[in-house]
C-alpha cells in the first residue's frame, strides 16, 4: 500500500468520525467540532495530493489549505457565537430541545 493511499484512508476515516459525531451527538458544540474534523480531513487530502501529485512545485494544494484554514477559523467563530446566542435565549445547547423559532 502506497503512502498516498494511507493518507487517503486516514482522511476518509477522520471524515467519517466527524460525520458520526455531527449526526449522533446532541450537543451543539460537539456537532460543530465534528464539522471541523470533516474540514480537517479535506485539508489532509489536499496536502496528500500535493505531496504525491505530479506537479508539487506549483504549491496549489498548500495555498488551498491555507485559504481553507482561514475560512474554517471564520466558520468556527461565527458558529460558536451562534451557540452562545442560542444558549442565552433558550438556556440549553441540546439540539433536540431547541425547537422554538421565537426565543
Amino acid at each position: 500500500m502506497s503512502p498516498l493511499q494511507l493518507c487517503l484512508l486516514l482522511s476518509s476515516l477522520l471524515f467519517c468520525v466527524g460525520l458520526v459525531a455531527a449526526m449522533a451527538r446532541s450537543n451543539a458544540i460537539l456537532v460543530l467540532l465534528g464539522v471541523e474534523l470533516m474540514l480537517n480531513a479535506a485539508n489532509i487530502n489536499f496536502i496528500a495530493f500535493w505531496r504525491y501529485g505530479p506537479n508539487p512545485e506549483a504549491g496549489t494544494g498548500v495555498l488551498f489549505v491555507l485559504f481553507s484554514i482561514a475560512v474554517a477559523a471564520a466558520e468556527a467563530a461565527v458558529g460558536l457565537a451562534l451557540v452562545i446566542a442560542v444558549y442565552r435565549h433558550q438556556k440549553t445547547i441540546r439540539l433536540a430541545s431547541i425547537n422554538r423559532l421565537k426565543g
Binding site: I29, L32, I47, W50, I69, A73, A76, L80
Partner: peptide, 25 residues
Amino acid sequence: AGAEFVAFAQGLVYVGAISMVVLFA
C-alpha cells in the same frame, strides 16, 4: 508531508485559537 508553513498555520489557528474559542464556549 513536508508542508511546514501549513503545519505552523494549523498550530496557530487550530491548536491556538479555535481551541480557546471552543473552551470559552
